[in-house]
Amino acid sequence: MFKALFFKEWLKIRWAGLIMLGLFFLAAAKTALNISYGIRILGANNFWGEIILKNIPFFNDYLYLPVLTGIVIGIAQFFPEVTESRLKLTLHLPLKENNILLYMAFIGASAVLLISAISLFVMGLISLTYFPSEVLWAMVSTSLPWVLAGLTGYFGTIAVFVEPIWFKRIFFIVVFISFIQALLEPSHLNFFQHSLPQFTIVTLLFSIAILFSGHRFRKGVLK
């Protein structure tokens, strides 16, 4: 049954996922070009200096991509569900309603993570070509909060879609955007080095937000 559910989610998100992956690859190509250009113009040592001494991430094109991925995947997955209340069909499937929602969220979140991981891997390869391993680890630790922002964006989007009440939706948008802002604003190398576990835990608090909204969806609350 979960396999079938996976099949349904896959049908919805595959194009969105591929497009996002494509964007990631474009960004990777742009980054690689920028690096190679920078090295040609400044010389490798000066270019290293820009990154290592000035703490500037060379992969800043990635900053908003995970969030965008989260939101796009969330929309691709839940827009078809809430238009014409199709979610009623889904919740009518012979599984526990909460399990259905959680499993859907799990699939979407995995897609966001997978896309982020693939692109991080590609970025990592680019990084290792031009830079020492220190830069690679700094890149990973710098971009993990961006991935967390992507997850938050995803969990937020799907909860907002399922939530039947506009006021709660808007307030929830405010809540998750302020957290995303906290994750994305300080976009310098390693700023989250000591606090990734804390920020991960808070991100995970968003993960089951859909259940409360889903509950009200089922109860037909209109207030």
Binding site: K8, K12, P80, E84, R86, K88, L89
Partner: peptide, 11 residues
């Protein structure tokens, strides 16, 4: 369950 308007997964 048949939804009003024969809604199904039209994707």
């Amino acid at each position: 369950f048949l939804m009003e308007g024969h809604i199904q997964y039209n994707f």
